Computed example of a mutant assay.
Amino acid sequence: MRVVFTVAILCIASLAMAQPASYVITSTVRLPAESYVGDPVEFRYTLRTDAAVREPVDVPMPPWGTIGYVRVIPRDGEFEVRIAVTPFEPGTLTLPELTLGDIRLEGLSVTVASVLEDEPNGLRSVIGPQRLPGTQALLLGVAFGVAFAIACGLFILGPGRRHLHTFLMRYRQKVPYKRLLRDLQRVEDRLKIDTAREFYIAIVAAIQQFMGLRLGRECRAATSTELTALLPDLARAHQAPPDGAGELKEIFDSADAAKFASSAIRRSLRVTHLATVRRVAAVLEASRKPLRRRAPSTAKEAPDVGV
């Protein structure tokens, strides 16, 4: 009887020693707080237990992902267990049982979100081609531009060719006068700054360029005498009387006096000469007859009649 009692006590003691030690999880931290499929996550569990807690020798791998490491860090009578996992499936996943020394850590779960919408699997309905905002307006604009370019091309190659040539010729005829006015405005802007010599150099250069464009010859190197001799030709180029540009001779004479004799010419006289150039140019421009489109001939030639 005593032997049987002793054997029973030994069996109970061995069973008690075979049971894993108890523990309490006091806190849980997840880093990061939210993760998706394929994102590595670290869980930190703080355990309170009297048993010995050690890192496992072998780490089991779950079917839904991988476990990177399991670390045990003692902290003031407690143990912090860090588990790094990388899930490859969404949903609530259960960690495998981990043997940490005298305790077995089990029943832990992981919640993994998915970037996909929560919709039933299967093929979706066919969706028509998508167009960016403004595509229709862009296509209409391109079509209108192509049609307009074709119409312009046909017009230029057809009846509009004569009109275009006339328009370009009229524009070119106005260029010398507009350029002269622009140069004279620059001279006027510097009237209070430039000396008499600088003033007449600038105003004569503007007249030389104007005469060269109107006469179709080089006048920038012409002397005052040569420019004076060309004044009747300048008037005839504008269909004006021969003496229509004669007033410019006085400006050429004053320019020679200022440039070569260093004559002191009053500012009031310079203002008068500037106004004279503008007035003469305006009269010449008004005398010039604009180009007119030649009307097509409607007369029919009489056929030759044999005798």
Rank of each mutant, 00 (worst) to 15 (best):
T26N: 10
L181Q: 09
L123E: 13
E78I: 04
S109K: 03
V305D: 09
S35C: 09
F155N: 09
L284H: 00
A237M: 05
T298A: 07
L213F: 09
P133I: 04
V277Q: 08
A281C: 03
T92W: 00
H273I: 03
G68R: 06
D118R: 09
E117M: 12
V280K: 05
S287G: 01
A137M: 05
I103K: 03
D194W: 07
L157W: 15
S262E: 12
L123Q: 08
G141Q: 07
P40T: 02
T195W: 03
G212Q: 10
F148A: 15
R236M: 11
S263M: 14
Q185K: 12
H238Q: 07
A52L: 14
R161M: 11
L184F: 00
P96Y: 04
P60S: 02
Y177K: 06
G68A: 05
V29K: 13
V70P: 01
D76T: 04
R190Y: 08
R82F: 07
P60C: 06
R179A: 06
V280R: 05
R279Q: 15
V204L: 08
A52G: 10
V307C: 08
E218S: 14
Q209N: 11
Y69D: 08
L132G: 00
V142T: 11
A281I: 07
P296C: 03
V283G: 01
G160I: 07
